[in-house]
């Protein structure tokens, strides 16, 4: 790596964007080298990718939310120590080693962002959507969250609602316990799970009452 005298990196040269074909070839080249070193295989690649395509996703966070809505003691444990409470349900792992859940109420609306990269609670929400990792959301969410929520996500919060934006700058992974919508008093935990969206746990959506 070339560096300048101050230690900061020298600009790299190159032409952008890189084509899909070039990237695909570079990825295969690197993977084949790592296979030669004995540290990965096609099998490992498939198993790891399938885990996040099929098993780990926001349905897990939704199950935690539904339980918190129906079991006040569990909800308290979740707010006290989210990592432990999720572990009770067999949920946890990479990028969720130290989780904190924050509760939305009628007065306070919370949302998460990672302005420096793409930190996100994988075990409960799965891998982040591209917009969460892209520059616009990361740049704007800490400065004009009310506008972003309204214009980009259709969430028009009352002026008196306090907005709290959690910038995931260290290794604690925050996520949101959304408000339980009115009209769901008779629903079971299993039915409630179906209502909870990924966006509501990021804090860019509200859970809608069933039609």
């Amino acid at each position: 790596m070339t560096t300048t005298e101050s230690g900061s990196p020298a600009p790299v040269s190159g032409t952008f964007p890189v084509t899909d074909e070039e990237i695909a070839a570079r990825v295969k080249a690197l993977e084949s080298l790592l296979i030669d070193k004995g540290v990965t295989s096609e099998l490992a690649v498939d198993k790891i990718a399938e885990m996040y395509e099929r098993e780990v996703g926001p349905h897990l966070g939704a199950a935690v939310v539904a339980r918190a809505w129906t079991d006040p003691e569990f909800k308290q444990r979740l707010l006290d120590d989210a990592t432990e409470a999720c572990r009770e349900m067999g949920i946890g792992g990479m990028q969720g080693e130290d989780m904190v859940v924050i509760e939305n109420t009628g007065d306070v609306h919370n949302a998460i962002v990672c302005t420096l990269c793409s930190c996100y609670p994988w075990p409960t929400l799965g891998l982040p959507p591209n917009w969460y990792k892209a520059p616009a959301y990361r740049a704007r969410m800490v400065k004009e969250p009310r506008t972003v929520l309204r214009e980009e996500f259709g969430v028009d919060l009352p002026e008196q609602t306090e907005i709290r934006i959690w910038d995931t700058s260290a290794e604690v992974r925050y996520w949101v316990l959304p408000q339980r919508p009115p009209g769901t008093e008779d629903m079971t935990e299993e039915q409630l799970r179906e209502l909870v969206s990924r966006d509501s746990m990021i804090g860019v959506g509200l859970v809608a009452a069933p039609a």
Partner: peptide, 20 residues
């Protein structure tokens, strides 16, 4: 891709994701 790794290695990696 070339052959490499084994089933035990793949399982070990999954466990790392599960354990964090």
């Amino acid at each position: 891709m070339p052959d490499g790794g084994d089933a035990d290695q793949a399982e070990h990696y999954l466990k790392i994701y599960e354990a964090g």
